[in-house]
């Protein structure tokens, strides 16, 4: 009987969702969160932090492959997720973040830098686990089409939909996305409200008991301040694909320099330093030889009558 009731109620619920009261499609998001193999503990902690901030997420085990990322689509379908949030670690140090709308794209690949987990940041802010954040976007997200796509993806993945299963009421934190220097900076703040200027309250009505005070507080705005919670990280968009983990590339960031390139450049610079030094050493030797200052090799100076060897022989 129970199963029959369940199925019946489910179907009815489904119909309700199909046609909401105001005729607008409901915002339903579920995010599959997972990482590749080879992530470090900091990457893992960051992933956990983000998962704890997103009650509409489903965390899965590490993905074995790094080349066949299209498998993620099947995984997402398996878990009923329409968003994929995937950490790809390379060389045990570089972290790439893939964000995708699961069945048919688009997909964004970004390079993650300056990441700090909640634990290591020691911020005093805290918020309810699963409360819905306010998302604050920089206006420059609307300036270009690829940024608009990015913004939409952030909205789907970091915005907790209303009525998510583990979501809690009340709004007590805000996620800020800012575009600076071609990178996206992400911060997470707690909204702390303090009663506005108690001193003025007391001075205005010193004789009255707190009953009146409470009344006035209701009408009055409380003062808002922010306390950072963490984590922090910076994203550099690299590539946008049309499909989900596949399809043609519709945006590529030319300014992005891969960390491998940076490292090799540094190494080359160092190597160049040694080469220059070695070369200059050889040059110096040749110069000294030319002047006849070396004991062996090079030009020998013609004997002079005024040489010390000749004079004091």
């Amino acid at each position: 009987m129970a199963s029959v009731y369940k199925s019946l109620s489910k179907t009815s619920g489904y119909k309700e969702e199909e046609v909401p009261a105001n005729g607008v499609k409901k915002n339903k998001q579920r995010v599959l969160i997972l990482s590749s193999r080879g992530i470090t503990y900091r990457h893992r902690h960051l992933l956990n932090d983000l998962a704890s901030l997103l009650p509409h997420s489903k965390k899965d085990a590490k993905l074995d492959t790094k080349s066949k990322l299209y498998q993620l689509n099947e995984l997402a379908e398996l878990y009923n997720c329409n968003n994929v949030f995937f950490f790809e670690a390379r060389k045990g140090k570089d972290l790439y973040l893939w964000m995708s709308k699961a069945p048919n794209g688009p997909t964004v690949k970004m390079h993650m830098q300056n990441l700090h987990t909640m634990e290591e940041l020691h911020f005093t802010g805290n918020c309810l686990k699963g409360s819905r954040p306010i998302l604050s976007f920089d206006a420059s997200f609307d300036s270009a089409s690829h940024l608009r796509v990015l913004k939409e993806l952030f909205l789907h993945i970091f915005g907790v939909p209303k009525g998510a299963r583990r979501a809690k009421p009340f709004i007590d934190h805000i996620m800020a996305f800012t575009l600076a220097d071609g990178k996206i900076w992400i911060r997470n703040y707690q909204i702390s409200e303090t009663e506005a200027s108690k001193i003025t309250n007391i001075s205005s009505e010193p004789s009255d008991p707190p009953k009146v005070k409470g009344k006035s507080d209701k009408g009055k705005e409380t003062e808002v301040s922010l306390v950072e919670i963490g984590p922090r990280f910076v994203l550099t968009p690299i590539v946008i694909q049309e499909g989900s983990f596949g399809g043609p590339i519709i945006y590529e960031n030319k300014e992005f320099v891969s960390p491998n390139q940076v490292r090799s450049d540094v190494r080359l610079k160092k190597a160049g330093k040694y080469n220059a030094r070695a070369e200059s050493g050889i040059e110096r030797l040749a110069k000294r030889g030319e002047l006849g200052l070396r004991t062996s090799g090079g030009r020998t100076l013609p004997k002079d009558a005024l040489d010390t060897g000749e004079l004091f022989a």
Binding site: V24, N27, I134, L135, F137, A139, E152
Partner: peptide, 21 residues
Amino acid sequence: ALPIAKMSFSEHQTVTTAEPV
């Protein structure tokens, strides 16, 4: 894209600054 314009604010909870930071 979500139809943000049609949705109530409590549905999407996004704020975009008036001027770029």
